[in-house]
Amino acid sequence: MAEVRLTTPISEEEIRKLKAGDTLYLSGKMFLARDEAHLRAIEMFDEGKELPFDFKGLAVFHCGPIVKQDDTGQWHVVAAGPTTSSRMEIFQDEFIERFRVSVVIGKGGMFERTTAAMKKYGCVYAAFTGGAAVLAADGIKKVEGVEWLDLGTPEALWIFEADNFGPLTIAIDSHGNNLFKDIADIAEKNRPKAYEIIGASKE
């Protein structure tokens, strides 16, 4: 399992070299999008509207940060850990197809649709320790900007400059491997053992 340092935008060739289980540290421009921002971006794209900036090759981070604004209007990150990625499963594949982001950062894992899109278009899912918001904020150098503040600060489209943001675990690579699926298979295999402990029948 390799330890890799990459700077966005990242080419498909570089992404294809990453394998599930690798550790990634990320630098460069990343943007934050949760449920609402994903929906709005897809909607705008489909209506032929221009997005605030080009997402291609960038990292999208599932995160609703705690931010504060100083007297000059500059925003600062206080805490910025990942949110549960599975909520984005219903449209992450469409998002990857339309915008060709290179890395999706989140926690808790994603499922078949996202894994398939990542294989098809060359993208990876990188897991950050859930709730580790103080550690995450240490890897953010600067808030470059924010769009769509009307969605509220947790849901807005924040643009961060990352500096060795990590450690991230490559949990889904662009070859169809998914660590969370592997663990789910292990849990399934262990289900009868768990039933035995509680005295339940094994059907």
Binding site: V78, A79, G81, A133, V134
Partner: peptide, 21 residues
């Protein structure tokens, strides 16, 4: 280990340990 480092750092800086407060 990351969780422990994170909450210790949060306590030291008096910063929320998780962004979801």
């Amino acid at each position: 280990g990351a969780i422990i480092k994170n909450f210790e750092s949060g306590a030291e800086k008096s910063t929320p340990m998780c962004q979801d407060t």
